[in-house]
Design a protein around this nucleic acid. Structure first.
Lengths: 250, 250
DNA sequence: CGGCATCTTGAGTTGGGTCAATGGTCGTGG
DNA sequence: CCACGACCATTGACCCAACTCAAGATGCCG
């Protein structure tokens, strides 16, 4: 497997109501029928790798848009920055997922992207890819789909923030991570949170204390085992229930 | 002006912190340098119009994706539907704005789109447009930009829902509508809400009673004059303040 | 071993939701 | 033209989920 983008079989079908809520469907997996010569050109274009230490910024909000990035290893967050105050986390990206589309519009990134652990990304120079899409309509369409996915994903997050309680959000978030890890052939029940409570809270529209409390509650109820950043899902079924039926049923 | 898509000068520069928060930047306005022959072909492709009575559905969630739509006259909402319960409004679209991008990914619309008043849309058959973009790179890039905008717009809404109080949301929403009307050379201080309280609330992540209360409060404070669906902004400055500085400052 | 960042837990407050009653507005049909 | 009824908006009383402030606890790294 020569480049990071040939990550097949990631088109996971997520099982739940909320499946699209914060689904991890941002993969750049190529369709299986992609012609080899295109993949080869892709390989050329996407030859550059970039290593980042934990905590390092990949691109800053407002900086010139050059490339889209696909995570090869590691973990990233993107956050939009409010002028007056702090920012808000808009996404988490793990191995095989792509981000940076928000820069296309204005030629500047709107968000800031930070590595949450030592990471490596594939640099996908947007200009060159755009060129390649002229010859390969499949590829063009594929990129449209990637962007469309980002849009529907965002719609889901919006619904999510607009209508779910704290517990539902946390449950959905954990299940989503579980899905994404599982799709990458890691354990679906044991994994490590890469972000801190505060970042998770920012993403979910909750304060970090609230996240902490909800984790404790889930633990009391026997759904999870949480210790700092390590998560073990004990009762997948019950956790799923939490999401599906919302107490104030909207 | 032959087709609805030649709506120039809509690239409004929004003035505030929240400007991108729920900016109306979804216009399909063509760049001024677009070659005439391309515009002509566009005209051919986008020759179909569709009239809808208030309350009529343009496309249903799950139905086959054929086209993107640009609002010629009238007003639309899009809403994502939760399986178990009700949906959530994900966007409002007025004259000159485009929607329907969420269908590209799966070839089915994820949202349902409804006319909120008697309306007319331009039908933009996606397949044909995609074909045209093969010859006209400008156009292709333009569509990428439109989608990118939708993404950044969504990010803003996410930030919005995740971090602002009810009053801030309503203030931002009203100012946003004001902007969008103004950009279309309507009054920026007097306009009519096309959606009902409930739809507005759904979009803003608030109950309709809360919307109502906040309107009343703003009225007491002399910021607005609200009567049912008619809005008059009395103190633009103060309304702007409401948005900028959030009481719990995140 | 200490210093620092992160996480947990507690106590008190509040923004917004829920439920319920009332009031306006508009369209329809007698 | 008015009266009815459906729909939408306003307002009040009460409640609870999540926030704030604050104090410890835990683990990490030099």
């Amino acid at each position: 497997m020569k480049t990071c983008i040939h990550v097949h079989k990631l088109e996971t079908i997520l099982p739940l109501t909320f499946s699209c809520a914060i689904c991890g469907m941002r993969q750049i997996c190529m369709p299986p029928f992609a012609p080899p010569e295109m993949l080869e050109k892709l390989d050329e274009i996407i030859s550059l790798r970039k290593r980042l230490k934990a905590g390092t910024v990949l691109y800053h909000s407002g900086s010139s848009f050059q490339a889209i990035y696909a995570v090869k290893t590691g973990f990233f967050k993107t956050e939009d920055v409010h002028e007056d105050g702090k920012g808000q986390v808009t996404g988490f990206y793990m191995m095989g997922e792509t981000f940076g589309f928000d820069g296309i519009d204005t030629n500047r990134y709107r968000s800031t992207s930070t590595a949450l652990e030592d990471s490596e990304v594939c640099v996908i120079p947007f200009g060159q890819i755009e060129g390649l899409t002229n010859e390969h309509l499949d590829l063009k369409h594929h990129f449209s789909k990637l962007m469309s996915r980002e849009i529907t994903h965002n719609h889901s997050v919006i619904m999510f923030l607009g209508s779910m309680t704290g517990e539902e959000r946390v449950a959905a978030f954990i299940l989503n991570l579980s899905q994404r890890y599982h799709a990458r052939e890691f354990s679906r029940s044991d994994f490590t949170l890469r972000m801190k409570r505060e970042e998770m809270g920012s993403y979910l529209g909750l304060k970090f204390e609230t996240i902490s409390r909800i984790f404790s509650k889930f633990q009391e109820e026997g759904l999870l085992e949480v210790h700092r950043k390590s998560i073990r899902i004990l009762d997948m079924e019950a956790l799923t229930q939490k999401v599906g039926h919302s107490p104030r049923h909207l």
